[in-house]
């Protein structure tokens, strides 16, 4: 059952990622990215990370991707322009990617016998425990993050404002 769920959502996830690459239109890529993120949220649930799964849906799928879609709409970004790709990418990139992928798979499968499996729900990561850690152990980082977000907001406003030169 667990394996089935994993393969189902993992397959959706991988398919979305590939679709992102294949699609010409930006809006289609964005929608497939939402699919990837949604299925990732479910995989997080499978791993018992309920807080992260929820946050994934709210922040990524909800907030960030909405922002992307707004920008796509705003800039009226239609089809991608066709252009000659870089030779370097063609010659080295694609074979390199495949080679890297094969090596990665090979290495991971090599180590398979030594590892223990992951049980679903083995780690019960409720939101209250995560919040407790966030406001104790990682308090400083959390507060600094708020400043980062504040600066990002101001930066976005300044950059996107019209007629500021």
């Amino acid at each position: 059952m667990h394996l089935f769920l994993f393969l189902l959502f993992g397959g959706i996830c991988a398919g979305g990622a590939v679709n992102l690459l294949i699609q010409r239109k930006t809006i289609n890529s964005a929608l497939s990215l939402i699919v990837v993120m949604g299925s990732l949220a479910l995989i997080y649930l499978l791993l018992g990370a309920e807080f992260v799964a929820v946050v994934q849906v709210i922040i990524y799928a909800g907030a960030i991707m909405v922002l992307y879609i707004f920008v796509i709409m705003l800039l009226n970004a239609g089809e991608e322009e066709q252009a000659k790709g870089s030779n370097v990418a063609k010659i080295f990139g694609i074979p390199g990617l495949f080679a890297g992928g094969i090596i990665g798979i090979w290495v991971l499968l090599q180590h398979r016998p030594a590892e223990q499996g992951v049980k679903i729900g083995a780690l019960y990561g409720p939101a209250d425990q995560v919040g407790w850690m966030l406001f104790n152990k990682y308090l400083l980082a959390f507060e600094v993050t708020s400043i980062l977000v504040l600066i990002a907001i101001m930066g976005a406003v300044v950059l996107a404002r019209r007629g500021n030169n």
């Binding site: 991608e80 790709g85 990139g93 990617l97 992928g101 499968l109 499996g117």
Partner: peptide, 30 residues
């Protein structure tokens, strides 16, 4: 029981897709 390597493989695949997209896509939003 799902071996952790499956998750890692999926993770690596997503990452590789991201890299590939970065390299082959021309649209800055993509």
């Amino acid at each position: 029981m799902i071996p952790i390597s499956y998750y890692l493989l999926l993770s690596a695949f997503l990452f590789a897709c991201g890299v590939t997209g970065f390299l082959i896509k021309r649209n800055i939003i993509t």
